[in-house]
């Protein structure tokens, strides 16, 4: 009987003592968390892509609520819808963010591009690049093992049959994760309203580039000479398009017709691609 009472007393005492300690600690070490942070976090797309510049959606929510200088429209995947919601919640003004999509600057499919060696190793672009710059003859081209597709938080990239990734423009939010993980830096972010795209990344001299890939940009400059708006420059044997001039001023893309290797092509928005597929 005595033991039973002792048990009750000791257990009760331990419970009460720790209960009290925890209650005091809760008050004493209480940290104020602004409830608005949680509300903003709920609105964000939760891709944890980092395009806003913060490590994850929770950190951006905290920054935008607590820091008056952080703009509410940093969430690239969220686009206008999220920017407006965040602006409303935090009482800040949001400006229009440009919609971007990912673009793989390479048309070196398995049929067009030459391979320099047979690669048998880890099925990852970064790993393959460590071995003499990758199994493709052109050392600037897409290696094709899908590191970008695996890292896309929105599943917008799929590896195609021909060794190049295909971008689903509807799913692509323009967050830029693929651009940062690609070891060849062959993915660029293009505005959704772009008119032309250069499907090549090769800095090799024309003759060498052509030997390694039939669809390469040889840096001949025909596109540059034919562009009446001065939107194209040839830098390091590669055509570089100034997107601003091309978007705003160009009315007819003469460059596309003049390219001898078809490296520069018309940029087709997803809506037209889907419509074309539906008809054809």
């Amino acid at each position: 009987m005595n033991t039973a009472i002792m048990v009750l007393v000791v257990m009760g005492a331990v419970g009460i003592v720790f209960g009290v300690i925890l209650a005091i600690a809760n008050k004493k070490f209480a940290m104020e968390v602004n409830p608005l942070i949680h509300e903003v976090d709920e609105v964000l797309p939760k891709g944890q892509c980092g395009a806003c510049g913060y490590a994850g959606c929770a950190n951006y929510a905290e920054a935008v609520v607590l820091n008056p200088e952080v703009p509410p429209n940093l969430c690239v995947p969220g686009k206008d819808a999220v920017a407006n919601l965040v602006a409303e919640l935090t009482g800040k003004k949001s400006e229009q963010l440009e919609v971007r999509v990912a673009h793989v600057c390479c048309s070196g499919t398995t049929s067009k591009a030459v391979a320099s060696y047979a690669y048998k190793g880890i099925h990852d672009c970064a790993a393959a690049k460590l071995i003499q710059g990758g199994p493709k003859g052109c050392k600037y081209g897409c290696i094709g093992f899908g590191t970008c597709a695996v890292n896309c938080p929105f599943g917008a990239l799929q590896m195609g049959e021909d060794g190049l990734p295909i971008v689903d423009q509807d799913l692509c939010t323009g967050c830029g994760k693929c651009e940062s993980v690609c070891p060849q830096n062959v993915i660029a972010m293009l505005p959704a309203t772009a008119k032309v795209k250069v499907d090549c990344n090769s800095r090799d001299k024309g003759i060498d580039a052509r030997k390694l890939c039939t669809a390469a940009c040889i840096g001949c400059g025909l596109c540059k000479r034919n562009c009446s708006y001065g939107a194209i420059e040839i830098v390091n044997n590669l055509a570089v398009v100034d997107v601003k001039i091309c978007q705003d001023q160009c009315t007819e893309a003469t460059c596309v017709g003049k390219c001898p290797t078809k490296a520069i092509k018309t940029f087709i928005p997803q809506a037209e691609v889907t419509a074309a597929e539906a008809i054809g």
Binding site: A25, N26, F29
Partner: peptide
Amino acid sequence: QLLELIIKKQ
């Protein structure tokens, strides 16, 4: 629990 509260704050 206590440890977590303390570390979170300090």
